[in-house]
Amino acid sequence: MTTAIRQLHGVLVHAAVLALVLLMLTPLLYMLTMSFRTGTEIAEHPLGLPTELAWENYTRAFASMNYLRSVANSIGITVSVTVLTALFGSMAAFPLARNSTPAARIFIMLVALGLATPNFVTITPIFVIFRDLGLLDTYPGIILAFTALNLPLAVFFYVGFIGSIPKDLLEAAKLDNCSDWQIFWHIIRPLLGPATATLSLFVMLMVWNDFTYPLLLLTDREKFTVTISVYRFVGNQNIQPDMLFPAAVLGSLPLLVLFVVFQRRIVAGVTAGAVK
């Protein structure tokens, strides 16, 4: 091939792949453009750009979804779960990575079982336990449920990480009369930064977007997370596009903004986490 043809070939291949990727993004663009069109406009011309921006779609969705409140709920629940999962997970992982007693081995086996168990296996009793303990429809309840769901991953993750910390470092601290807690808090915890960042990304994504637990464990509108308020606002009968699309945009907005800003780190983190 001459250089000119080779160059043309290269441009064509790039353009074709780019077109393919943009094709994959059309549902997103569809969601965005539809969200600014009125119901009658969509009924008359199902495809097309908005003739003028129907902001009233957004003001209605914003108010009926109790949007700010639900965003605040999602943030509160997500942050609490992430902190508790990281703290409890790293604490438990410390002795599990250092000891090979039968108790430690049983604990690790339980954690492995927890990793494979879908939450549908435990959903019935969790509902019963929550009802009996008065945890239904409370923040502590749903936070604990999510923490339990993510703890196996956290323990597993941290055990691998703490196991790779040189033994000598911890032995030296022990000789200096550090207590186990001091070793954990002053030596191990600062080293766990990168692991915690990756783990937190996983946990945050999972908790923020989860649908099942809020659907089953929350009924009070004031406690709804973003996901569930989108679901309740749009409903499941006779779906109206001028309600569906603005709600969908508002529902994905917080994470999409975060993603646009931190996309490289998020993709790298989630992939690295999966690979480990």
Binding site: M24, L25, Y30, S252, L255, L256, F259, I266, V267
Partner: peptide, 18 residues
């Protein structure tokens, strides 16, 4: 890579409805 990854940032509720 980032463009293809974007839908994974959304919830099942939004993807399901859309």
């Amino acid at each position: 890579r980032a463009a293809l990854f974007t839908p994974a940032m959304m919830s099942f509720v939004v993807v399901g409805y859309v």
